[in-house]
């Protein structure tokens, strides 16, 4: 989710379109809310999906996050950051709250079933297989690790920004990302050896 991450600092809040919409939402402007939802919806869904890896859960979390944005709009303080950053924090919290209710998404061995079974050129087959291995490895990661990877590689957030979103320290995020990448590499190497690729 690239929700204007670079403009999440307190000083730049006033320049954000989403922040301007958010101030109108706080006054009960439903049209502004609709516009805000359309702006933030896709990146929010992407982040929720990458973190939860469950379609229904991701949809539910997004709906709840926007509901909270609407009902708690009066709490938004533009002096403390952009609407994007504020909303992302709501979403991240809901994703992390939700994670305990979700079982591991897919076993490593099942991951290979996700590749397209139709005959295809070798390059496509390899790409599909790689995608399946990444998907399966991601599914086995801790949701906090998945979230950190999604925020760092997917949304391009800095360590400090991720730390703020996850309510932890930048050092802890570094550790989280390091472990996530190591585990992913190990799992992907294991499956590569198992399949002889």
């Amino acid at each position: 989710m690239r929700m204007d991450a670079r403009a999440s600092g307190p000083g730049t809040a006033a320049t954000s379109v989403a922040t301007a919409l958010m101030l109108r939402v706080a006054d009960g402007d439903a049209a502004a809310f609709t516009a805000l939802v359309r702006q933030l919806e896709r990146p929010a869904q992407a982040l929720a999906w990458r973190t939860l890896m469950d379609r229904a859960a991701a949809e539910d979390v997004c709906q709840r996050a926007f509901l909270r944005l609407w009902t708690h709009a009066a709490r938004f303080d533009p002096a403390r950051g952009t609407a994007e950053a504020w909303f992302r924090r709501i979403l991240v919290n809901l994703c992390l709250d939700r994670r305990r209710a979700i079982r591991p998404v897919q076993a490593m061995a099942d991951g290979f079933d996700m590749a397209d079974p139709a005959p295809s050129p070798e390059a496509q087959a390899i790409a599909a297989d790689t995608s399946a291995r990444v998907e399966a490895a991601m599914a086995r990661l801790n949701p906090r690790q998945r979230l950190a990877l999604a925020l760092f590689h997917g949304d391009g957030l800095s360590m400090a920004e991720i730390a703020e979103q996850m309510e932890t320290t930048a050092k802890a995020v570094e550790g989280l990302l390091g472990r996530a990448r190591n585990e992913m590499r190990t799992m992907m190497n294991e499956t590569m050896n198992e399949t002889g690729l």
Binding site: A30, V37, E41, Q45, A46, W49, E59, Q63, T71, M184
Partner: peptide
């Protein structure tokens, strides 16, 4: 490898705005 995975997001159901704005702020 990660970039390929991150690029693909399944189409999720749109947020139900009407259901949300029916709630009191």
């Amino acid at each position: 490898d990660l970039a390929g995975w991150l690029a693909v997001t399944p189409a999720l159901a749109a947020v139900d705005v009407a259901a949300i704005t029916a709630h009191r702020q």
